[in-house]
Write a protein that binds this DNA or RNA. Sequence first.
DNA 1: CTTGTCCTTGACGTAAACGTTAGCTTGAGT
DNA 2: ACTCAAGCTAACGTTTACGTCAAGGACAAG
Lengths: 144, 144
Amino acid sequence: MPHEKNYSISELANEFDISPRTIRFYEEKRLISPKRSKGNYRIYSRKDRTRLKLILRGKRFGYTLEEIAEMIGMTDVDMSEIAQIERSLAYGEKKLKEIRGRIEELRLLEQDLLNVGEKLAGRLKDLRRRESTSPDPDPDDATE
Amino acid sequence: MPHEKNYSISELANEFDISPRTIRFYEEKRLISPKRSKGNYRIYSRKDRTRLKLILRGKRFGYTLEEIAEMIGMTDVDMSEIAQIERSLAYGEKKLKEIRGRIEELRLLEQDLLNVGEKLAGRLKDLRRRESTSPDPDPDDATE
DNA sequence: CTTGTCCTTGACGTAAACGTTAGCTTGAGT
DNA sequence: ACTCAAGCTAACGTTTACGTCAAGGACAAG
């Protein structure tokens, strides 16, 4: 008898700091499909919770709900047809490349911020050492 | 005499594969401020181009234009007031943490995809080795 | 000087992702 | 049995980020 921890809609909403409406909206868009209780309340399983987490993670990277729906579709393919699985694998490969590209971009952004930070810090030291001098040129531009 | 390469709106639009309208929209929202030609055409400098690239990069990570505006405000602080610079540095620190967090998350997503991929690949091998057997259980769940 | 292409500023339209209100039901607690 | 927070559906409202005309100026080519 697996006591499989379950959740109410507001429990999840609180945990992930979103509104119940948001969760219901995801259901409308068929991204999640909780069971229902006797009185028609939504019951979220641990798996549902995991899925919600995936949805939110996707959102944080600017994926649309539609794109997320696709990705999710991939994670719960019915595991029966060979062709299906092959397509899923191909899709996964594509997504992996995308994600690795994004990681690269984030590294660039990180570098930009670090550079700006250094420049600011340098300028700050200057300003503090000599309490008034001439203005200086403008070495600008960011990561290509 | 610095010939400072300039760009028209459609040049940038084509380069980054967005519409001119989109660029004008960013201007409305004060994320970019090109000079104007004699005939009131927008003229984008190399710096403007760099800024546009930053905007688009931000978008790819799901930042709203408003958030991007804040970040950008940071990159071109007027470099004069000590307090200003200190605030900018603090803001930069925050953003850095955020970005590093995102990189971590992407790693998790990458792992999820890799795991799913392995599972699928395994299943595929099974299906191909024996061309019909009994169905099997369900080892599921993703990265916590 | 006309034509064609690109540019300009409005102004209205729209899809995505929820927010909000209304009206009614459920079910845990006393 | 009563209360009342928490759920439910249905429907309309809102914000963000542009798309899409409309009506006209700019400018290189012929």
